[in-house]
């Protein structure tokens, strides 16, 4: 499989429902609907044999984004799958039963950014201190106002 074939496979699976950006020789960005997240996980990890490098959660001025960075080591390619989440109630389905490595990644994003992962509720503190206030998420852009 080479880069072009991979792009075709992705475009075929999510025909009309994804946007593919060929950023540079080793980087592709794919934007999908967040409802496809679990399908993306099984398609990339189980069918295409990609490795989940890490996920990035981030807040922009309009919304939240959750990015899955998949690494195709054999062809030296990093494919980032982007799901856009709502500003008011950011949530997305968990993929931890499909990719076990995602369990802690989801805990981390839940705790630091307040994204809810349906099917992977965090039972206790994972990164922040035990006495950190509930509902305050340090990586959010309005985090500063809670610092005082």
């Amino acid at each position: 499989m080479n880069k072009e074939q991979l792009k075709e496979k992705i475009a075929g699976r999510y025909a009309g429902r994804c946007e593919i950006l060929d950023h540079s020789p080793r980087r592709i960005y794919v934007t999908i609907d967040k409802k496809e997240a679990r399908d993306v996980a099984s398609f990339f990890f189980q069918e295409l044999g990609a490795r989940l490098s890490i996920c990035t959660g981030l807040e922009t001025s309009h919304n939240f984004e959750f990015l899955y960075h998949f690494s195709f080591d054999e062809i030296g390619l990093t494919v980032t799958v982007r799901a856009i989440l709502g500003k008011a109630n950011p949530e997305i389905e968990s993929i931890k039963d499909i990719i076990p490595a995602a369990e802690w990644i989801e805990y981390e994003n839940n705790e630091l950014l307040g994204i809810d992962f349906i099917g992977n509720p965090r039972k206790r503190r994972f990164i922040l201190a035990e006495d950190w206030p509930d509902g305050v998420y340090p990586l959010r852009k309005n985090g500063e106002e809670h610092n005082g």
Partner: peptide, 9 residues
Amino acid sequence: LRIGYNHRG
């Protein structure tokens, strides 16, 4: 596992 004892942000 519990991480974050040295989380420096």
